[in-house]
Amino acid sequence: MTARQQHALLALTHVSRVHGTGATEVRALRDVSFEVAPGELVALMGPSGSGKSTLLHVAGGLDQPTGGSVAVDGTDLSSLGQAERARLRRTTIGYVFQDFNLIPALTAEENVALPGELHGLRSGEAREAARAALAELGVADLADRFPDDLSGGQQQRVAIARAVAGERRLILADEPTGALDTSTGEQILRLLRERCDAGAAGVLVTHEARHAAWADRVVFLRDGVVVDEADAGLTGLAGMTGAR
């Protein structure tokens, strides 16, 4: 595990998150530790209320743990001020949501360029990075279209382009296929997988086993606790001769 710790892009160590106090206390996460290395895609599965979305928010610095620590690319998030944390979120972390969260008044390219511009890139640079990201996701031709003119699958591709533009290396995806049909959902998984194969670290929250299976590791959460993990290791089926 030491090697992975050294190279982890995301490291959660004994993380707890308690909402409320006394009788209304809810322990959303209890002593959760896990790491994600560059090139790795990890899926989080569990019933609703198991803490998987809280875990994703804590991992991305959108919410803060009440115990334990979260480190992104070696930096402990609690050591950062609010401005620095916001900066890290814009430069290193990309988010993908179930409902895409694109801004309707902006074109696809403007949506993708926005985080870069907020971060202080010159407009030209941000646009260039946006076009590159859209091209990588196979939607360069949609750059000038508005979200309302795009299908769900196209919107999610644009949202993933926004999440990876500017070489952000940690992708956090919360039910990214929830609003999509089966085959479009699978294309989105394929894209996330390709981003991770190209060196990003990914965390995918999903309740669909079929989608979680694209991950290298599947972490099962129950009542805020990690109850088990499935690694893509050898199984009895590994000898199947699908490859020529």
Partner: peptide, 19 residues
């Protein structure tokens, strides 16, 4: 669930690689 998930991961790996 863990055992079946491993099998599912393996099927998925075969699906995204090779022929």
């Amino acid at each position: 669930r863990t055992a079946t998930m491993r099998a599912l991961q393996e099927h998925t790996r075969l699906k995204r690689s090779g022929r």
